[in-house]
Design a protein around this nucleic acid. Sequence first.
DNA 1: GTCTATATCGTGATAGAC
DNA 2: GTCTATCACGATATAGAC
Lengths: 207, 207
Amino acid sequence: MKKDTSTEAKIKEAAKTVFLAKGFEGCTSREIANAAGMNVALVNYYFRSKSQLFKLVFQSAVEDIVLSTVHIFKTEQTLIEKMRYFIEKEYEFLAKHPEIPNFIINEMNREDGCFIEYNHLFQQVAETGIFNECMTEQAAGRMREISLVSMILLIMSNCQYPTISKKLMQSIHQISEDEYAGQLISHRSHVTEMIIAYLFPKNLSNT
Amino acid sequence: MKKDTSTEAKIKEAAKTVFLAKGFEGCTSREIANAAGMNVALVNYYFRSKSQLFKLVFQSAVEDIVLSTVHIFKTEQTLIEKMRYFIEKEYEFLAKHPEIPNFIINEMNREDGCFIEYNHLFQQVAETGIFNECMTEQAAGRMREISLVSMILLIMSNCQYPTISKKLMQSIHQISEDEYAGQLISHRSHVTEMIIAYLFPKNLSNT
DNA sequence: GTCTATATCGTGATAGAC
DNA sequence: GTCTATCACGATATAGAC
C-alpha cells in the first residue's frame, strides 16, 4: 500500500493525529492545517467543516479497532486460545494506537457528538461466532455463567484501562513511559491468567 | 454540614457540575455562570479566571476520590476483607460520581493541564499500611507475587472502566441506563470474586 | 458585591484573486 | 487547487456604574 501524498490525504492524516491526541474541542482547524503543512481554507475546501472532518476520523478510528477484533476471532482455535490470543493482540494494538479508546469514549460523552451505527459493527464481531461459542460452552458447563455484557466488560476493562490511565499511573507511581511500558508486559500476563482462570474454572491445562 | 448558599459557593458548585460533565474545553464561563444563576463577571470576580476555577474543581475531585479510598483502608479487617470492601465501596462511589475518573484522566492528558502534587495524595493511601500489608502477605506466600503497579491496575481497571465506558456499552448492547446499572451489580460480584481468587489463590473460604 | 457594557482576541468558515 | 484577506461570531476577561 503506497502512501497517498495528495493534499486531501495529508490533511486527513494530520487530522487523525491531532484529533486523537486532543479531541474535537481540544484543537482548532488551523492547528490541523498547520500539522498538514496547509492552511485553513484547504481544510474546508476538502472537508467542508471541522465537524465533517472529525466524523470521518472518528468513524475510521472505530472501524480500526473493530476490524482488528473481527480478524482475531476468525482464527481456528479453541475458545480459550482465542481469548488468550485476543488479549495479546489487543495489547499490541493499544501499544500502537493508545489514544483510540479514550478518544471514542470521550466522543460518546460529548453532547452533539457524532453518532455512529454501532449495531452494524458489533454485528460483525458477533458474526465471527465468538458469542455463540461462549453461550454453547456455558450451556455445556465448561465455562462460567456470565452475561455477554459482563464478559465483554471484563476483557475490555483489563485491556483498555491500563492504556487509558497511562499518564495517571505514571504520575502516581513516579515512573517513566518506558518503565510503565515494562509494567504493562507483565500486567498482560496477569490479566490473561486471571480472566481465563475465572471464565474457565475447571480448565487445568492453561497452555 | 449546612449548605453554603453564598454566591461564591454557588458558582463553585455549578462549576463542579459543568466541568465534570464537559471538561475544561467543553464548556464556557458563561455556561457555568448561568448554571449558577449568575453572570460571567461574578465568576471572574471570585475566581479570577476560568483556569483558576477549574484548578480548584479538579483538585477537589481528586481529593474526593483519594480520601474515600483512605477511609476504606483504615478499617480493621483482614486484607481480603479490605479488598472486597474496597471494591464494593468503589462501585458505590462511582455510582454517585461517575464522571470523576474520566474527568481526571482527560485532564492528565491535556496539554497545559493543571498538575497536582499526586505524591502527597498517594502517600496518604500508602500510610494506611495497605501496601505494606500486601508485601507482607506476598512474602509469606499467602498472596500472589505481583507488582504494586499491577495490583492497583487490576483493581482500578475493573472498578473504573465499567463506569467510564457506560455510554459506549449502552450503545453497543442497545440497553438503557437502568439496564446497564443492573448489569453493573452482577458485574461487581464477578470482579470481586475474580480478583480475590487471582490474588489469593490458596484461599478457600471466600466469604 | 453585582450588574451592564465593552475591549480584545481566536475561532470556523468563506470570498475572491491567482 | 491553493492562497490571502476578511467576515461574523463567541470566547475570556475587565472597566466602571450602582
